[in-house]
């Protein structure tokens, strides 16, 4: 390990110098063999771009999550303003029956593969307070399929972080190319 402070700081983020040690020890050094899918998934997991679509209170914690102290940029989470550029939608807050078709439409506008993070109790199940209510949708999963549920009212930014780490874990394990090939074969391609 290096003793240079700059190197040490970097190695906390990603242990680059140790990677080189491993690579140099390999026969024919500098070459790593991996499955194409794994490499693609590695890249996809490191750049999950969510759509900025705040509904209610949880949106404020989502803003904190993307701002100074928690800084979602460092795990590759960069908010996008339009669904066409987004990989993932964070449903932050309570969804009313009036907004539900719009959430659905936004989700449909996103390119595949796409993911949904349900943030907070309201988006997950209608919330701790709105059980006897006529206007709130009892869970966003009635409208769009959810990948990760983040509980809390509202969840702390750390909790949303955990949710995104779980989502990244899921993306890394996904047989994403094979599923696509199978789908196109099924469609008669």
């Amino acid at each position: 390990m290096s003793t240079d402070p700059e190197q040490l700081r970097r190695s906390q983020v990603f242990p680059l110098d140790r990677v080189l040690e491993v690579i140099d020890a390999l026969p024919g050094g500098g070459v790593i063999l991996a499955k194409v899918e794994d490499v693609l998934n590695w890249g996809r997991a490191a750049s999950v771009w969510p759509l900025t679509f705040g509904l209610a209170c949880c949106a404020i914690e989502m803003m904190q999550f993307m701002a100074t102290r928690f800084d979602a940029d460092r795990v590759g989470i960069i908010p996008r303003g339009t669904p066409r550029q987004a990989d993932c939608i964070i449903v932050a807050g309570r969804a009313t029956i009036k907004i539900a078709p719009i959430v659905r439409r936004l989700w449909e506008q996103m390119p595949e593969p796409k993911y949904v993070v349900s943030m907070g109790s309201c988006a997950t199940c209608g919330g701790p307070f709105y059980y006897d209510n006529y206007s709130i949708l009892k869970g966003i999963d009635q409208v769009i399929p959810v990948d990760v549920y983040v509980p809390g009212c509202p969840p702390r930014p750390e909790a949303l972080y955990e949710g995104f780490l779980k989502l990244q874990e899921k993306i890394r394990k996904e047989p994403f190319l094979r599923r696509r090939i199978a789908a196109s074969a099924q469609a008669g391609g």
Binding site: A56, T96, K98, F129, Y130, N133
Partner: peptide
Amino acid sequence: GYLHSSVEKMMEYRTYLQNIALVDRGMDYL
């Protein structure tokens, strides 16, 4: 009306103490 949560009606079904937790969320959340 995209965020209408009918908080005024819901408050009629909760006690005065319970309503403290409800107005946090139902009204201006900031």
